[in-house]
Design a protein around this nucleic acid. Structure first.
Lengths: 207, 207
DNA sequence: CATACTTGTTGACTGACTGCCAATAAGTGG
DNA sequence: CCACTTATTGGCAGTCAGTCAACAAGTATG
């Protein structure tokens, strides 16, 4: 008989990297960092443990990649109607967002989950960048065109992002709020922010 | 000459436990979980590493204790005027809260810091309990007395807690917002929630 | 079809870390 | 001064992450 199938298949670096990353995303999404061993990930991917280091460096580096992968909300730059009265724009924006979140299920909830104490600068930076991107997007859609790129405005909307995440958790994970209730909460809050808060948070001095 | 001072001092279990916990709080507040070894904590506390296990069991158990210690906002049950018009009560409440936070500096900011991905049920539960306690407190102060203990209302106010944490981070850590701006944001948002959102989140059916 | 070459992949080695437990000694009462 | 309680130590065993030289899968070459 001829030599049988090889013991392992040789993949393109990109493909192998992607496969490993996918397994890592799943495992890190289920258990906290310390409870996931590189051996677990290697077994899940069906490769030798040393290969993880070859592609990602250290375990922590792999984790950072996972976080980067999970935080970037797909189709974030999808256009949402940015004309019409404020309430209509806000509600359309919130609707689009809730649709996106419900489509990705638990993935979004997992990234927003606070893991307790412990300041990790690099993680913070990744999350901050994602929040800021989302904030710009919101301001672009519902913000007043005049000063939509003001730093103070972005900070307020980033804080609004905290409300959004917490509200989505209540809805998608804990089921303590319905989608309609979350929609109401987020819409009213955003309208209030645009109408009553942003004018008082001007770039130069206060109103 | 008499036998010199002993190589180590014997402490009351409570005292020793407290001392170790204090060191753990400091270290876990500076670095993420995996970057803090039990040896580090033991050295910091000046005790043998095995003593940590004796008092707290596993490293993870010690970490849970640290989180429990940090999340409970001291003097949370301090009375705040719960009479007068809504706006006055809300602003007094927000003021009290910002005072408390600024008094405890970075401690509060550290606990609210999301550490990325990874669902840790026990941590989530601890944080959820703290959030719910805070939510009850807020409802007690500014909520309408009729149905202040409604589950839906608590969920909305817990979500509001997400806004609070994010806003405080912008102010106390990143300094991208002033205290006045945070005060404005949190007050307006809370007023909107009490006025326009909670009535639409009734216990039985919707309005 | 056989051979040399490239490189994706493996497996073992090493240092670090955690949990465990019997021995030790600090403090106290008799 | 001595015996007793127990807080504390120190070392052992198992696990895990990072490194690297050797190996083999796939491809090009004659």
């Amino acid at each position: 008989m001829t030599a049988a199938e090889p013991r392992w298949r040789r993949l393109e670096p990109d493909a192998r990297r992607e496969q490993i990353l996918a397994c890592a995303v799943r495992l890190f999404g289920e258990r906290p960092y310390a409870a996931v061993s590189t051996t677990d990930i290697a077994v899940e991917a069906g490769v030798a443990r040393g290969l993880l280091n070859h592609y990602f460096g250290t375990k922590r580096d792999l984790y950072l990649e996972v976080v980067r992968r999970m935080v970037l909300l797909p189709d974030l730059d999808e256009a949402v109607a940015s004309t019409g009265p404020l309430r209509a724009r806000v509600e359309a924006s919130v609707d689009w967002f809730l649709d996106t979140v419900s489509a990705h299920g638990k993935t979004f909830v997992a990234v927003t989950g606070a893991e307790g104490v412990g300041t990790d600068p690099e993680i913070e930076q990744i999350l901050a960048a994602a929040d800021d991107l989302a904030a710009r997007k919101v301001l672009e859609t519902v913000g007043r065109p005049a000063d939509h790129d003001d730093a103070g405005h972005r900070a307020v909307v980033r804080a609004y992002g905290g409300l959004v995440k917490a509200a989505v958790r209540e809805w998608a994970r804990d089921e303590t709020l319905t989608r309609g209730q979350v929609h109401l909460l987020l819409s009213q809050a955003l309208i209030t922010i645009v109408r009553d808060v942003l004018p008082g948070v001007a770039a130069k001095g206060d109103a």
